[in-house]
Design a protein around this nucleic acid. Structure first.
Length: 204
DNA sequence: TGAATGATCAGCT
DNA sequence: GCTGATCATTCAA
């Protein structure tokens, strides 16, 4: 079941939490890729010093001021693309950053796009997953209720969710301490793969 | 730990 | 319109 418009027309925090355990799908010309969302962060507009929309509407953030259920993508550090899901109703600029996926369909295509072979190196970070999924700035404003990029429920899967502090938002003062990052509890596919690999090797 | 790398935005003229 | 600082990251070393 594809998530409908109503799913997105709620608080960014609710959407961020409920996206964990859902399946993100990109039906691209090169092939279909998908993955289970295992890490998200909520960005809450006017009350959130870490949010791009904190300072108001700009050319870049204007999609956040429309209806929920659209894609907000932006270039970060001049070289990587991050994908967000716009949440809530018009005039409330909240969104959810997708930070990591557990690869599902199209793994071979992901390996080619990423030039990596380890399953954990494909989607374990916001810049990595957009590369693996073939998502670019050109997808800015795409409707998630359409057929190219969408999110759907996974049958019979009730995820265990943990809330933590967001990553790399130290500039945001108090907002840096809010528990607005959500992960699939104990998932091996969240960002910060290096640490996980060390633990994995150590366990052997 | 630091380099890569370019759009975005505030603060000017 | 121009300029400089900034940045929701990744990778190699």
């Amino acid at each position: 079941m594809k998530c409908n418009r109503e799913f997105y027309l709620r608080s960014g925090l609710e959407v961020a939490r409920d996206l964990i355990g859902k399946k993100l799908v990109h039906n691209s010309p090169e092939g279909l890729t998908s993955g289970i969302i295992v890490e998200t962060e909520a960005y809450m507009g006017a009350i959130d010093a870490a949010a791009h929309s904190y300072k108001g509407l700009t050319e870049r953030t204007k999609i956040q001021y429309g209806l929920g259920g659209y894609v907000y993508v932006y270039l970060i550090y001049g070289m990587y693309v991050c994908m967000n899901v716009v949440a809530n109703i018009e005039e409330i600029p909240e969104c959810v950053l997708i930070r990591a996926l557990q690869p599902l369909d199209g793994v071979d295509l992901m390996k080619i796009r990423r030039k990596k072979n380890n399953l954990r190196d494909l989607c374990s970070g916001p810049g990595k997953l957009t590369q693996a999924m073939g998502i670019t700035k050109n997808h800015y404003g795409i409707d998630l209720c359409g057929d190219e990029i969408f999110i759907e429920e996974v049958e019979n899967f009730i995820p265990n969710i943990t809330a933590t502090k967001r990553i790399n938002v130290d500039y945001a003062g108090d907002a840096a301490n809010y528990l607005w990052r959500f992960i699939l509890t104990d998932s091996e596919f969240i960002s910060g793969t290096k640490l996980l690999n060390l633990n994995f090797e150590g366990d052997k």
